[in-house]
């Protein structure tokens, strides 16, 4: 997944609340992926949606 602000690729194994500085203040844990490069809060897709996104990236990355 690419960060919605800086456009850099967020490592695939980064889960909700992971990253350089998860704040951990939200009840039930953070459901956002904070970009390790710029800190922007990107949505954290669930398992099914993550698969959809990966499929999309695989189709796109044929270079």
């Amino acid at each position: 997944m690419n960060c919605g602000l800086c456009g850099k690729e967020i490592p695939a194994d980064l889960g909700p609340g992971d990253g350089k500085s998860p704040c951990g203040s939200c009840r039930g844990g953070c459901r956002k992926i904070h970009c390790p490069y710029c800190g922007y809060a990107n949505p954290a897709p669930g398992k099914f949606l993550r698969k959809m996104l990966q499929k999309n990236n695989e189709e796109k990355t044929d270079e």
Partner: peptide
């Protein structure tokens, strides 16, 4: 980063993920 045409699947996944996490919150 370069400007580009939005990709339908990206937009849907991001929208649904945001709705899901917002609702859970």
């Amino acid at each position: 980063p370069p400007m580009r045409l939005p990709q339908l699947r990206n937009v849907l996944v991001k929208t649904l993920s945001r709705m899901q996490s917002y609702f859970m919150e």
